[in-house]
Design a binder for these strands. Structure first.
Lengths: 157, 157
DNA sequence: TCTTACTTAAGAATTTTTCTTATTTGAAGA
DNA sequence: TCTTCAAATAAGAAAAATTCTTAAGTAAGA
């Protein structure tokens, strides 16, 4: 779904402000990649962003899109639907539960909460399709990462 | 975190029942891959499962682990922390919102709800680390997929 | 026990992601 | 506006992740 011109304009303003204050360069590639990412609320995959950006800027390399989106993520301009490292992870627990995910090392822990388990899916979500499940995803730093901010994170996968 | 022997036994029983009723073969590889996936609540990555399975069954190939986990997913024995297709997807909307994700075609739509936006992160989650954000992930079939169950899903990324 | 269709290992192929290097370019100061 | 230089880029190579092909092995039902 395309965003309104007003909304897009506001987001582009925010983008420029963040780029300026982070003292990173404002390049045509970055502007176009941001514009394409913000154009819709479809949460595009990297490949999709790349394809659309190349329609306007045929020279852009895939590597640039990877690097640029990673930069945007560091700057807080975009989020990924799963924190990195982004490999699939498996869960044999099929009872209702929720997840705490460390955005630094990938540690993923279950937690349960009676209030959340009986979470009522709002009508805004039910309107989008046939709901099968709902769970809460909490992101943050695990205790170990909060303590060792300096050391390289160990990959807890 | 390792699961208790009682819990593991119960899960293995469920596994065997599902395999039997789905009329797929119970092979030593499948048993071992399930056992390894259920052994902890660490939500292991595929590579981790592969590495641990090979300690007991050195011959198992990576491809078998891929196929087997995919089968388990189809049988509802495991879930992945992100529905497939499993490429990273980006979101330029940095205001609080929630996601509806179609497990068939990957369509991802935002929705908002005042009650969910002010969701209180339970202490069970806060105890695990420093919380940065929380959002609800609703999974199901989008309207299009619910209608076209027979046709091949178009990849909405 | 005997079939038969399903499952597997191995390696090749494909796809995705990251790295290397030479070149170009944006931004801050002159 | 010009100059300078660190940062950013394209291109292609490399590495990593995932899927496919094929021949051989094996579980489940007759």
């Amino acid at each position: 779904m395309t965003r309104s011109p007003a909304e897009l304009k506001k987001m582009l303003g925010h983008f420029k402000a963040v780029v300026r204050s982070a003292r990173v360069k404002m390049t045509p590639q970055r502007l176009e990649i941001y514009r394409e990412t913000a154009r819709t609320d479809d949460h595009p995959a990297l490949e999709t962003i790349y394809r659309n950006v190349r329609k306007k800027m045929p020279g852009v390399s895939l590597d640039t899109v990877y690097r640029t989106l990673d930069l945007f993520r560091e700057l807080g301009l975009v989020s990924t639907l799963r924190p990195l490292p982004d490999r699939a992870r498996f869960d044999a627990n099929i009872t209702p539960h929720h997840h705490f995910i460390c955005t630094r090392c990938g540690l993923t822990r279950d937690f349960t909460d009676p209030k959340l388990d009986s979470l009522k899916v709002p009508s805004a979500a039910r309107a989008l399709g046939c709901v099968e499940s709902a769970h809460v995803e909490v992101r943050g730093l695990c205790a170990a990462c909060a303590n060792d901010k300096n050391t390289k994170p160990t990959d807890r996968t």
